[in-house]
Nucleic acid binder design. Structure first.
Lengths: 168, 168
DNA sequence: CTGCAATTGAGACTCAGTCTCAATTGTTCA
DNA sequence: TGAACAATTGAGACTGAGTCTCAATTGCAG
């Protein structure tokens, strides 16, 4: 990922401008976040850092995510029915999510028409939108084809278990 | 609210059909839920029942909400950036939400065009939708007019405090 | 190189929500 | 009507994501 360094610099610039410091922990987190494509959870990030033997505390992970959300480099999203997920924001535009309730996979999509219509709805109600969040829950093609197979051991659950053990 | 009794009966029918029982606690909760219009939180409901001197435990509140969600009489929604909220479902159709991030007020809306477009998007991706959740966050007309006033003590926070004290 | 504000880690804490289990209650059937 | 028994309840322990505190550490401006 050649862009990662650029993202670190973007964050550094923001920090400086706010009178904040670019610490090694913050840089490491940004590098990690921007070198993967997937949506992630805070604990999952914590876990990955431990795996790489980069020691960063839970508190710092959350604090850094908060800063990144403030800069707009990371977005907090609801997926499915659970707690928060995060996704990094690169130049590319806003998108929404199709979430498979069987396997947890996420398909991103963007639809200009949908966005435009939302703007119209807001205008009609004299509401000034700043952000929106649309998830469509359902069943993805692969799961539908597989039919009612017993729940596969899924990635999310495995991560949770791993994170729990770490916590000790 | 003359409809409330009808809702209790609807729930009773569902329970019977599942071999479950209509207890006084369940009936009281349904009556409470369907005699208010607003979105509510589980703890808020618990609090209201205590206020009315109807003793119902936290566990029962959550268990009953779960049943009501299963019947489709109540819907679980994300509003703003927090935990869950619930809303009762009467005959009327699905709707989405405009959520004011300043005062927490919620405007419901329904737009057939939006819904139709979503169906098309799903079809194109071979995704079988079962449900969706759209919130548009922003600033409502009243708050915009008031400008940048210091945060008013809001309803949500008050309820949380009250609920916390109860918990003891 | 120094000084100091910003930052960190460890772990206590919060809070919504879940689970357990003994005691209670609604319903079915005689 | 009443016995029998499964479903339900309440109290409180527990969980897990996220927040807070504070002493020790670190980045950076001068």
């Amino acid at each position: 990922m050649p862009h990662v360094q650029k993202e670190v610099e973007r964050f550094a610039a923001f920090l400086q401008q706010q009178g904040l410091k670019l610490t090694s922990e913050r840089a490491a987190l940004v590098r990690e976040i921007f070198s993967t494509h997937y949506h992630f959870e805070a604990d999952e990030l914590l876990f990955k850092m431990k795996e790489k033997a980069v020691k960063i505390s839970r508190a710092t992970v959350y604090r850094t995510l908060e800063l990144l959300v403030k800069t707009g480099m990371v977005r907090r999203v609801h997926l499915g029915e659970d707690h928060y997920h995060y996704e990094h924001v690169t130049g590319n535009s806003h998108h929404d999510h199709l979430v498979c309730t069987t396997c947890g996979s996420v398909i991103e999509f963007h639809d200009a028409w949908l966005e435009e219509r939302q703007r119209e709805i807001c205008k009609k109600r004299h509401f000034t939108p700043t952000f929106h969040n649309l998830q469509i829950l359902g069943v993805c093609e692969a799961c539908k084809r597989k039919g009612e197979q017993p729940d596969a051991p899924d990635r999310v659950k495995m991560i949770q278990v791993a994170a729990m053990q770490l916590r000790k």
